[in-house]
């Protein structure tokens, strides 16, 4: 689809999608959202770019290969299991650390967030691979 309106609109929509994806990722532990949904939204923004500029263009201009999203995601998932392993609190137990930031106030960071972020990255990679393998070959 080679229309100017779509091309310009997609630039803003993609930005919004990414922001929305990150919000969904961060609120995910206690509310609807989380790594999977955030990852799908972020993957959607990539897909959107693919449909406006063509998948071939996207394939040529990917600065990070989708495999690396999956790899880094899986590595992060593995890392999220390590603190519990060291503390001997049982396999994959969530560990929470409270950090006080100067502006935002108290922030709770924990291994579930790392886990979610890993899922987020892996899902982005998987969505892009789905996109590449299921669309028409040139």
């Amino acid at each position: 689809m080679n229309t100017v309106i779509l091309k310009i609109a997609s630039r803003y929509v993609r930005g919004l999608l990414i922001i929305f994806a990150v919000i969904a990722l961060l609120r995910g532990h206690n509310f609807p959202g989380g790594g999977f949904i955030g990852g799908l939204l972020a993957g959607l923004s990539v897909a959107f770019k693919g449909y406006t500029f063509g998948i071939a263009y996207l394939k040529k201009h990917m600065s990070i290969m989708p495999e690396w999203f999956i790899i880094s995601g899986l590595v992060m998932i593995l890392f999220s299991a390590i603190p519990a392993f060291l503390n001997k609190t049982g396999f994959m137990t969530g560990e929470w650390y409270k950090i006080t930031l100067p502006l935002a106030g108290e922030l709770k960071l924990g291994t579930p967030l790392i886990f979610d972020f890993g899922i987020f990255l892996a899902i982005i990679g998987i969505t892009i691979i789905f996109l590449f393998s299921l669309t028409e070959k040139e």
């Binding site: 790899i71 590595v75 593995l78 299991a81 396999f91």
Partner: peptide, 21 residues
Amino acid sequence: MTAVALPILIPFVLIISLLFV
């Protein structure tokens, strides 16, 4: 006992390392 999880964890680590190879 954490060792129970190892039969799952070891293949997972191997999968990650094989992704690099």
